[in-house]
């Protein structure tokens, strides 16, 4: 009797969640693809000139192409990749070290744990604005330290508009364009906000490792660095894999932090969209809804983002399969 199937009842329990998911999760997934293949969809008029694949002389990937050909998309893509591949490794390594250190002390452990957890509960807009003040050219803390402690003549213009000097060598220009001071400031903020979650997960992982492995290693005269590399890291590898995957996914979607620090223009004053990301591009298109095809471009950008996340996640999972000890 207990093993009997409860089809009707089960679906009844599921129905509230299911109804909401159908409308706000499943349908949007399909609709995103539908939109991305609509030709000249005019949101204001609610009209379209058919699908890209039924329209004569129109490329199947018309909307994707327009998205990709947009200069802003290239910038958004590069900014996103910089954020993903710099901020994630940096914050994973820092949080790994911090949690190992934290795990090895007894006194004040709870105190430090509470402090390190603070960024998890904060409002990204509010803290982003605070970071903007900290990086302020004249009234900020960073420049004050740079001038008074490190003896610099005047501080750096962290959040100021970037001027790209096209006459400099290509590499130099590239750095000016992408890995500039505003980007570095943003990265500090993003790293700051990402530490809390990672530290918590690593710390609880470390605390679940049997102490006897460390006793055994000690008796066998294992140097500290080797204990870390050969015992701690492998036994923590499931958490490291989990954190790496979720952080990559999160970093691909960075947007609110930029709004917090730079405002909805996504860049320094007079230099709008300097720090735009792919998600930023999606919202930008969404805000230009009176322009024909904007919705389709937004949808195609979102799908491109999804594909990139998917590829990276699959790659991560593939690496984890080989390297992670479960």
């Amino acid at each position: 009797m207990l093993e009997e199937k409860h089809h009707f009842k089960a679906w009844l329990y599921l129905s509230p969640a299911l109804a909401l998911l159908l409308v706000f999760t499943f349908y949007p997934i399909f609709n995103a693809f539908y939109l991305a293949f609509l030709y000249n969809f005019d949101y204001m008029q609610r009209t379209a000139e058919g699908m890209t694949f039924t329209t004569e002389g129109i490329n199947l990937f018309h909307n994707f192409r327009r998205t990709l050909q947009d200069d802003l998309f290239i910038r958004a893509l590069i900014n996103t990749l910089i954020i993903v591949f710099v901020s994630v490794p940096v914050s994973v390594i820092i949080s790994l070290l911090l949690s190992v250190w934290l795990n090895s002390i007894k006194r004040f452990q709870g105190f430090f744990q509470t402090i390190f957890f603070l960024p998890y509960v904060t409002n990204a807009i509010a803290i982003g604005m605070a970071f903007a003040v900290i990086f302020h050219r004249e009234y900020g803390l960073i420049n004050m330290i740079l001038t008074s402690v490190f003896g610099m003549e005047e501080g750096l213009n962290w959040l100021g508009r970037v001027s790209v000097d096209e006459s400099t060598p290509a590499i130099r220009a590239w750095f000016q364009r992408y890995l500039n001071l505003p980007m570095l400031s943003l990265m500090v903020f993003i790293t700051w906000s990402g530490l809390a979650f990672k530290i918590m997960v690593f710390l609880s992982g470390l605390q679940s490792i049997d102490k006897q492995y460390y006793d055994a290693a000690r008796v066998d005269a294992t140097p500290k660095s080797r204990v870390f590399r050969r015992i701690t890291i492998p036994l923590l590898s499931p958490m490291i894999a989990y954190i790496t995957i979720t952080s990559f996914i999160g970093a691909f979607k960075e947007y609110t932090a930029i709004v917090g620090m730079f405002g909805i223009d996504l860049g320094p004053h007079g230099d709008a969209n300097r720090l735009i990301t792919i998600v930023g591009l999606v919202y930008k298109s969404l805000n230009e809804m009176d322009s024909v095809g904007a919705m389709s471009r937004a949808a195609s950008a979102a799908i491109i983002l999804f594909m990139m996340t998917l590829v990276l996640t699959l790659f991560n999972m593939y690496v984890s399969k080989k390297r992670v000890h479960y």
């Binding site: 006897q212 006793d215 055994a216 066998d220 036994l235």
Partner: peptide, 28 residues
Amino acid sequence: PEDRGIGLVFQNYALYPHMTVRQNIIFP
């Protein structure tokens, strides 16, 4: 302990789960 020259077998063995038997034995 590392300088005492002892071998210790724990009640639940404390074998490193991510290493093979060979890696476990060669570790010291």
